[in-house]
Design a protein around this nucleic acid. Structure first.
Length: 488
RNA sequence: GGCCCCAUCGUCUAGUGGCCUAGGACGUAGCCCUCUCAAGGCUAAAACACGGGUUCGAAUCCCGUUGGGGCCA
């Protein structure tokens, strides 16, 4: 904690790829912690790998965060702009005798490494240059001899109390004097991160499990720099169905791909938050605010989790269902535009019609993509009869024709559109008069009106569609079926 | 290979020594509702990796084995 006692966290992606599911969850946990505690969420782009970092990827990451609704209070800071601070820190370490120049050549180091492998030992730098006197080192540096700067790792062990894993310890001899500044003066990752986190006053480092082995080095640097390390919380990784670290192999992993597949940001955030964290009670469908209120680092599990798309779909459906028709309308509008069935083709140009339609289809849809398909028949134009619908409800074309005859008469005589009960009563009595099962009429009509096997209740469908379009569709269906009968 | 992390239903999880005949959720199966499909309601099958301890008592603590994963090489 810093002097004011407030929480400062950061999300520090490197722009060498998209914002993927794992990174997104790390961002979410950090953001949740900041919002829960009233702290500050800092965004830092770790773009020191100039070769692999691109502006396009930075854009992608910001897009992803924006879609998720993860907003930052500071930044984005760019790590590449802090290189002077990193070098300065390396120099300070050197001055304090906590780091030293190393003149070993790549060949020498490679030989050392091979020897270690031959002995079946893990390789750590032996520390030869540590013994070089200050005077000699200065002289050789001044002479321009190439060198790196290495951290002088003390004897003993380095441990910390990880919020998710508990006490975690590394023996320092397994770490070895690691490089802090390359021979070209470029700071090494662990130095850059530590210096940046220190400069930015980060109090809690919440990041992926894969950084555990970096942590002792960073702690050593904090201490050597005379600073207290922050609180560390290492979140377990997200796994693919085959239980290996989630990667491109497992399909769409850029979060924007989920956006494009029709998932709701709130549902996606909810889902990722539940991967490795739980509120402690049985709640699962949670709003953003509920997540913020319930979130604590202590409730993060230490076990890695498999990404289960089916549960995501369910959760998305839940979120969709809980939204009002009007809210769904606002979110889904661009989807309809893109599908070419936007406002221009809307039969009744008021927003209410669309919002009401959304209210009808939302509980039947799991994604926005489903939603569009469900709603499509309500817009003008011909419908395509889906094979499964024909198979199920129009198996006997003559019978379907008979049912539709009743449907046509019903539609012609109906004058209480919108009164669902009255409509049903009227249709049922008419069907009974004609000696046709009411259910058959409704089901045949469903296919005629929507071309689909599935739709909202038939009277809601009729009302939303309007009499004119319904007549058109019924006529087309009778024609289609007649051809079928004739063709047999 | 070395170091580190992890281990409850297929999956996400609750569980922090007795409330556990292990709870919830997704998925699966069945039933109810019903004009279809969802939603909703009810029910079912489904787990404490294994072996030793510690303890009156262990899913919970300790050790080992096995298995998975990560990082480094």
């Amino acid at each position: 904690m810093n002097s004011t006692g407030s929480v400062r966290v950061r999300f520090a992606p490197s722009p060498t790829g998209f914002l993927h599911v794992g990174g997104a969850r790390t961002a979410i946990f950090n953001w949740l912690l900041a919002r829960h505690t009233g702290g500050v969420f800092v965004l830092r782009i770790e773009d020191t790998d100039a070769e692999r970092s691109t502006d396009e990827m930075i854009r992608e990451i910001l897009d992803g965060l924006e879609w998720l609704g993860i907003d930052w209070d500071e930044g984005p800071h760019f790590q590449s702009r802090n290189v002077d601070r990193h070098r300065e820190a390396a120099e300070r370490l050197r001055e304090a005798g906590r780091a030293y120049p190393c003149f070993c050549t790549v060949e020498e180091l490679a030989a050392e490494r091979e020897a270690a492998i031959a002995r079946k030992e893990s390789y750590v730098y032996g520390g030869r240059c540590r013994a070089i006197s200050r005077e000699e080192a200065d002289r050789r540096r001044a002479a321009g001899e190439p060198h790196t700067i290495r951290f002088a790792v003390p004897a003993g062990e380095t441990a910390w109390e990880d919020v998710v894993h508990g006490r975690t310890a590394f023996e320092n001899r397994t770490i070895g004097d690691f490089i802090v500044l390359r021979s070209d003066g470029a700071p090494v990752y662990n130095l850059a991160v530590t210096v940046d986190d220190l400069d930015m006053g980060i109090t809690h480092v919440v990041r992926g499990d894969d950084h555990i082995s970096n942590t002792p080095k960073q702690i050593l640097i904090y201490r050597a720099l005379g600073a207290d390390p922050p609180v560390f919380a290492h979140v377990p990784l997200i796994l693919g169905p085959d239980k290996s670290k989630l990667s491109k192999r497992h399909g769409a992993i850029a979060v924007t791909a989920y956006r494009d597949q029709g998932y709701l940001a709130d549902a996606f955030v909810n889902f990722l938050a539940l991967l490795g964290w739980s509120p402690g009670d049985d709640r699962e469908v949670m709003t953003r605010q509920e997540l913020v209120d319930a979130f604590t680092l202590e409730r993060i599990t230490g076990k890695s989790a498999v990404f289960d798309v089916e549960k995501l779909e369910w959760l998305n459906g839940q979120h969709l269902s809980r939204l009002s028709g009007r809210e769904v309308a606002a979110i889904a509008a661009p989807w309809f535009e893109r599908a070419g069935i936007g406002r221009l083709t809307e039969p009744q140009g008021d927003g209410d019609w669309f919002a009401n339609l959304m209210a009808l289809v939302k509980t039947r849809s799991r994604t926005l993509h489903d939603l569009v398909e469900q709603a499509r028949p309500f817009f003008p134009g011909p419908v395509e009869y889906q094979p499964d619908a024909v198979e199920k409800f129009w198996q006997d074309p003559s019978a379907a024709l008979a049912a539709l005859a009743v449907a046509v008469d019903y539609v012609e005589s109906e004058d209480r559109w919108g009164d669902l009960e009255a409509m049903e009563g009227r249709l049922r009595s008419l069907a009974e008069e004609r000696g046709v099962a009411a259910g058959k009429v409704m089901q045949s009509m469903r296919v005629a009106l929507t071309g689909q096997r599935v739709s909202p209740g038939i009277f809601e469908t009729l009302t939303a569609m309007g009499a004119a379009l319904a007549r058109e569709r019924l006529a087309a269906a009778r024609e289609w079926l007649s051809r079928r009968v004739a063709g047999d």
